[in-house]
Simulated scan of single mutants.
Amino acid sequence: MQYFSSTWWLCRKVRRTTDRRPFVQAARILSAPPDDEARDEVLRAFGEWRDRDFQDRVLYGLREACRTGEQERHRPVPDLPHSVTRFLLTDDRIKEYFGHAEPKFGTGHRDLAEWLIDAALHSTDAEARSDLAGLLSETAHPDLLGRLDKAVWEALENEKHGHPSKVRLWDDGVPTDLTRIILANPNFPLPPTERQRSGQAVYAPEAIVAVLKDRLDKLADYLTPQLSYAVVSGLLEAVKFPAPADFVERSRQALRNLPPGIAREQVVQAALHNQPEAIAAAADAGYAPAEERDALAFLYITRQWDRYDAADPDGSRMTAYCAKYARPYVGTYRHQIELAAQISGRPNPCPKLPPPDPSAQTDRPHGAVGSWPTSWVSGSW
């Protein structure tokens, strides 16, 4: 009587059933300790790669079997062994799957793209990461490119907030796998999407990619009314990243070469709120507020004293400006002007504020107005 192994019986189920569970069980053999005979048996069964439904069940099994207990932004983190990535890339299986129409059920193109990119960034097997990096470095598929773009946004958020994550652009100043993929792929930086053009999406990681790839000529594509704030904010953050010096220098250069319009005004506003990099960029590039009346105050607030003293040698113009436009704190630049005077040891040009008028206070009488959990006015909650 011929003996058949448990793997043989499992693969027999894989070939004959539409149930996904045997596919998961078989896929776990690929991640288990080395058993070449069992692994080859599973690969032969999976390798038949028949119709779309069979392919979907194979991918479902691999996705379930190769997940770890960790999460990245509420997604299960995959860890693919080299045997799995080699299987997926052999005979262009992944490209074939992406070539099908988007399925109504099962593994969609975006789900697969997310899984592959997460695996490329998190897998512990160096050969598996290399396999997937090769695929992603040359892909032109819109779902893979879109998910890579999202990974860049996540990396920028992680850099900005210092989140402990493998999804970063640099590791102690050294480019990560994600950065190397972006640098190698000729399709980056991506053009703005329809959602970005319409203002539905107000983030622009592509602008930072343009700086990363030394394509500052592409920044103009993102300096639309909807995206200018995101671009300038991103550049002001980028100069503080633990990145190589050439990237930081290109970010500073981009801030100093913005075209007239909203983007420059964003730098001006950031400078008025005492952001050092914005102050330096505005001073170097000669940016000024859109309101001409605020130009002198801008020089004062940003402490460009050579230019300010040349424009207002005796301080009379600034005093007159403050008397007219900086009397209250709310809705004026009074706080910023006083801060600049304090930092620089100059006289405060703002007029003294009158003492508060006691008769203008409208304090209502205190009294019991109900108690929790009843209404704060009266009666029941």
Rank of each mutant, 00 (worst) to 15 (best):
L235I: 00
P225H: 09
Q253E: 15
A238R: 10
L235Y: 00
A243H: 06
A245N: 10
Y229W: 13
Y229L: 12
R252I: 05
Q253Y: 12
G234I: 06
V231F: 10
V248R: 14
A230W: 08
A245G: 11
E249C: 06
R252G: 05
L223P: 00
T224V: 02
V232G: 06
A230P: 06
V248K: 13
E237W: 13
P244M: 11
K240M: 03
S228D: 13
S228Y: 12
S233D: 15
F241W: 10
P242D: 15
E249S: 14
F247G: 05
K240I: 00
L227G: 01
Y222L: 01
S228I: 03
S251W: 03
D246N: 13
K240L: 04
D221N: 11
E249N: 09
Y222S: 02
F247K: 03
L236G: 09
F247C: 01
P244K: 11
L235N: 00
Y222N: 05
P242I: 04
R252V: 05
L236Y: 12
S233K: 14
A220T: 15
P225Q: 04
V239F: 10
S233Y: 12
G234C: 07
A245V: 11
A238D: 08
K240F: 10
T224Y: 03
V232A: 07
A238W: 03
L223H: 10
L223I: 00
R250L: 00
P242R: 14
S251Y: 09
V231Q: 13
V239D: 06
S228K: 09
L236I: 04
K240C: 05
S233F: 14
G234F: 01
Y222D: 04
V232T: 03
V239S: 05
S233I: 02
A243S: 14
D246K: 11
F241G: 07
L223A: 03
R250V: 00
A238P: 08
L227M: 07
F247S: 05
R250H: 03
P244D: 12
R250D: 00
Q253H: 14
E249F: 10
K240W: 08
T224F: 03
D246I: 08
L235S: 04
P225S: 06
G234S: 15
P225I: 02
A220I: 13
F247Y: 11
L227F: 06
D246V: 10
L235M: 02
S251C: 15
V248C: 00
P225F: 09
P244Y: 09
S233E: 15
A238I: 00
S228F: 13
L227I: 01
L223W: 05
L227T: 00
P225L: 09
L227C: 02
F247D: 04
F247E: 01
R252Q: 13
P242S: 14
D246Y: 09
Q253W: 11
Q226C: 01
V231Y: 12
K240Y: 14
F247P: 01
A238T: 08
P244R: 15
Q226R: 10
L227R: 02
A230T: 04
S228W: 12
D246P: 05
L227Y: 05
Q226M: 06
P225E: 06
E249A: 15
K240G: 07
A220D: 15
P244N: 08
K240V: 02
Y229N: 12
V232H: 09
L236A: 11
S233P: 04
E237C: 10
P244T: 07
D246E: 14
A230M: 08
T224N: 03
